[in-house]
Design a protein around this nucleic acid. Sequence first.
DNA 1: AAAGTAATCAACCGCGCTCTA
DNA 2: GTAGAGCGCGGTTGATTACTT
Length: 332
Amino acid sequence: MGRPPCCDKVGIKKGPWTPEEDIVLVSYIQDHGPGNWRSVPTTTGLLRCSKSCRLRWTNYLRPGIKRGNFTSHEEGMIVHLQALLGNKWAAIASYLPQRTDNDIKNYWNTHLKKKIKRFQSVLDIHKMASDSTKSTTTSTTTRHQFLNKNHIQKRSYDMTTTTTTTTDRSPSILKLNQSSNYSYASSTENISRLLEGWMKSGPKTKAKEKEQEETSSNDNNNVQGNMNKHVQSQEISISSDDQLNITSEDLHYSFLSFENVDSIGPLIGSHQLDVMSTNEKLSFILDSKHKLENNQQQPPLSMLETWLLDEAQGQGEEMMELSPMSDEFNNF
DNA sequence: AAAGTAATCAACCGCGCTCTA
DNA sequence: GTAGAGCGCGGTTGATTACTT
């Protein structure tokens, strides 16, 4: 016997939720609290199945949800946690209480997967560049050593950026959120504010809705200001230098990512990577790498970068086996 | 300006787990 | 021990928006 549907398919509304439906649902939850989803449609008269109600609440209406762009810190956490846990979006979301698993999943599928793919192709280039220099000079540090060097540096960086005790062996990125005292239950006032907003505006256009959403999101940010400040004050920025073209960005992610973007501005800015030939790019990359290696005051690495370098370190031997000139390299 | 294409993300679907009678 | 209800999770879909030609 197959499992019966969670609700009768007849008379059940599907598709986007209207503000009116949202209000009904929020009002219900305000009175009864979340849970017992089965009874929500019958009690409220909503023509939605219980699952749809739960989803709407957890992914959209629940107070404390942060919408909009992901910060580099969040991005780093997702990348790291995905590597640790796999596609366990709910588990990953538990470390990012302001984000829903659905949001994280979407962000991973639409942004991060591509980013990592791009990064890996840069690593390939780096490997090939490293190989070609190795054949001409014996004093060149191997890529593996280079990565090791950064690996050690990364560990010391973690020690300086976290305030938790050094005996705690959990990754520093996890400590950041564990230390925040986010309280889900304390946000019922947000629901009221949400309701007020809807009552005032009535039915909204899509554009208006979006606009209010942003305002509401800002409000939420204010409510949770202390927590956000706490987390953001320790935020480790990858770089917000979106003006860089993709080639520079990739390069930036690979081994030129300084905390202070200004410090590499002149370096990248003076080189028109897009108009360089492959050989010129290669020389530039190698040159940059050597500069970094010889730099006594190396800047700390971003979290995403350190993780990626960790990963790359693990793959170090495999990387050395790569066949020459991948498509990614030719398109770089 | 219009058509085509790509990107985004809210919502749906089906499966599996837990709890209870 | 078993069946069914309830819920949560991860994968997928499809409508909408943004961008390109």
